[in-house]
Design a protein around this nucleic acid. Structure first.
Lengths: 222, 222
DNA sequence: CAGTATTTTACGGAAATCCATAATGCATGT
DNA sequence: ACATGCATTATGGATTTCCGTAAAATACTG
């Protein structure tokens, strides 16, 4: 079982819930962080002190408030922590149920577990902690398990996402082309842009651009 | 202080948090419901039993699962409960921070308090319970208090919202006009549709239709 | 290097949208 | 009945997006 755990979670109630869960599992050496920045600093300090954490439980979305922060969301935190301490186990604990995002957490950040917050999440969280502490197997909540079966989403790349973001913030296609030309990005012709959009619409089964942006927003891609 | 409280909330951890909060306030007669439908039935039964609740604490978003439900979200639950038992106090407890939705809860469903889930929400929830139990004043968390100052949003009506929904699901303008003609809705001309859209774009400061849908989705209007 | 395939860019017409203005309808008051 | 004001609808042209095809550039192969 894990000896030293850190929890990154901003919602006060949920922290109480996780705390109770950890106590139930007889894990007493754990810390909370309500900001990603704090979690990262604690993890780094623990390494320097030669007493590293062996498990990070992290939420994905964190509320913005008055405080200025470097790391704004759990995805970023996870990515940086994985880089800093490759052997730490990471469990994401979130209400996020968009398969695209879940899959990319396993694929890119190589998280060890994903627990969906819900009506029975505490039981799930316990299972995830057990499984990841005793083996190198991955845990994923039943309701979103299908996310991993999804065929790879690398058919859409960073550029596609950038285009979608521009569109969703109201930039006309011509201007996006211009922006790409100015910043020296590769496909910077009108027709290349149109072709990409057409691909995307095909891929997401969108009738038109409005629909495309709507769908990708719903999926959490942008 | 309230004598009998019902909590509608699906996330298990948060239920633990609320439970603790109520106990701290020495409220012992309370029930949880993880589905809106259950909450509604309990409230109705309590009335029939002549032992009505005097406070409802409700989340706004509920996860879908295998179970078939009538009431899918807290907004609906609140609306129906307000109708069924006009004198009950209602506190919404949610991460929702879109001023449009918060304002419409106060305006339409006449909720008594809105507590934003966050890093210090338990303290807020206690304040809200205190205030609404001892007076008819309204409570709103500090971070979203500005929502009430927003100028009224009745400038956009149900029809606007219907149009936006059609757009976001990929229906071209011409087809929306046709749908309105078929179902005998009032403004069913191409130019009326264009005028409405132009108004909306103006109101939301959107550059084009894609932008408009993106903004209204972000605001939680559609 | 020639030849082929693939990708990128260019072009042009069709469709959809944007936008300003004009026409129509409709209620109101005198 | 007439005039006025307001709302809806019609019209036409500018702009943008859509979509197919073709040319050009690039990569790949023997």
């Amino acid at each position: 079982m894990f000896k030293k755990v850190i929890v990154a979670e901003d919602l006060e109630d949920i922290n109480l819930g996780i705390e109770q869960t950890l106590k139930d599992l007889e894990i007493v050496n754990f810390q909370h962080a309500k900001y990603c920045d704090d979690a990262f600093l604690k993890i780094r300090k623990a390494i320097l002190d030669n007493e590293p954490y062996d498990l990070l439980i992290s939420d994905l979305s964190f509320k913005k408030d008055h405080r200025e922060v470097k790391i704004t969301c759990g995805d970023e935190l996870i990515e940086k922590v994985r880089e800093l301490q490759p052997d730490i186990k990471i469990i994401a604990y979130s209400v996020e149920d968009k398969s695209y995002r879940i899959k990319s957490l396993f694929d890119n950040a190589e998280i060890d577990g994903f627990v969906l917050k819900g009506r029975n999440s505490i039981e799930d969280l316990k299972k995830a902690i057990h499984l990841t502490s005793t083996s190198d197997r991955k845990f994923i909540s039943h309701d979103v398990a299908s996310a991993l079966q999804e065929k790879s989403n690398f058919e859409i790349d960073d550029l596609d996402i950038e285009i979608l973001k521009h569109l969703s913030s109201g930039t006309p296609q011509d201007e996006i082309v211009q922006i790409f030309k100015d910043s020296g990005k590769k496909p910077n012709s009108k027709s290349a842009m149109e072709k990409r959009l057409s691909k995307l619409k095909d891929f997401f089964k969108a009738n038109n651009t409005v629909h495309l942006v709507s769908i990708t927003k719903d999926m959490g891609i942008i």
